[in-house]
Amino acid sequence: MTKEEVRPINRDFRGSDRPRETRVNERIRAREVRLIDENGEMVGVMPPARALDIAREKNLDLVEVAANSNPPVCKLMDYGRFKYEQAKKENEAKKNQKTVTLKEIRMRPRTDEHDIQVKTRKIQEFLADGDKVRVSVQFRGAEMRHPELGRKLLDQIAESLKGTATIERAPSMEGRMMSMIVSRAPGWEPPKKQAAPPSKKQLKAVDNEQSEKPVEAVQQES
């Protein structure tokens, strides 16, 4: 007895997860459609050929907007203009999107107070830019016997960031690192940066400019 070769059934699933293409004008094949005019008013149920005639009379397109309805819903519109405005909105939305980056600040269990304050300010700078921050305490050697020191340090930083940050992931131990993740607190607005005072070099340049003016110009200004 010979074994029959079993071949897998070749089914083409390409495009099964793609959005269905919008049918326009002659591509609408339903027996009947429910027509909505360009002002959003219901016109009624009719064959697509009749709806297409109405669209042509108004120099508009017949666009299927609800293919799964029974009968499908079609609307009169300028499809080219609709696609242009839709693409424009999508481009504007992409411009306004900001990529959130996960930054990391590392410390040791016995980091001194001054360094803690410096690193806390750095965390606030990251949060002001819209980024998330992983705050980590790294243990070495005998420090592994005292994880409570790392927890105490992270709790201290969390307390300093109250009102500024939200704890997205509570402190947890992973190998030789204890970490927590914080993000910008809702409603928190970072203080506006004040303009730096002019440097000595800039002030000297202004003085030189004033001294080089013609005598007549200086007299007129006075």
Rank of each mutant, 00 (worst) to 15 (best):
L35N: 06
R145G: 05
V73E: 14
R169F: 09
P198Q: 03
D155L: 13
G141H: 11
K204I: 01
I167P: 00
R20H: 07
D37C: 02
A170D: 12
P147F: 07
G80Y: 02
E104C: 09
K103L: 15
P19Y: 06
P71S: 04
L52I: 07
S179M: 09
I105R: 01
R31V: 07
E113M: 10
R34S: 07
A93T: 06
P190K: 03
C74S: 13
I28D: 01
Q156N: 06
G187P: 02
H146N: 08
P19E: 11
G130S: 04
D112L: 10
E64G: 04
I167C: 02
M180H: 00
T120W: 12
S199P: 02
E189K: 13
R81P: 00
T164A: 05
K75V: 05
E21T: 14
K200V: 03
Q86A: 11
E212S: 13
E38C: 04
E92F: 12
E113Y: 11
E148S: 07
L153P: 00
A165P: 10
N68V: 13
K83D: 00
M177L: 15
N25W: 02
Y79H: 08
M173G: 01
R23S: 08
V133L: 06
V206F: 04
S179W: 02
R134G: 04
V65N: 00
E41Q: 14
R56I: 08
Q117T: 15
V33C: 04
R110C: 06
A158H: 09
M42N: 09
E26Y: 13
V206N: 01
R121T: 14
M178H: 01
R106W: 08
G80H: 08
L52S: 02
I36F: 13
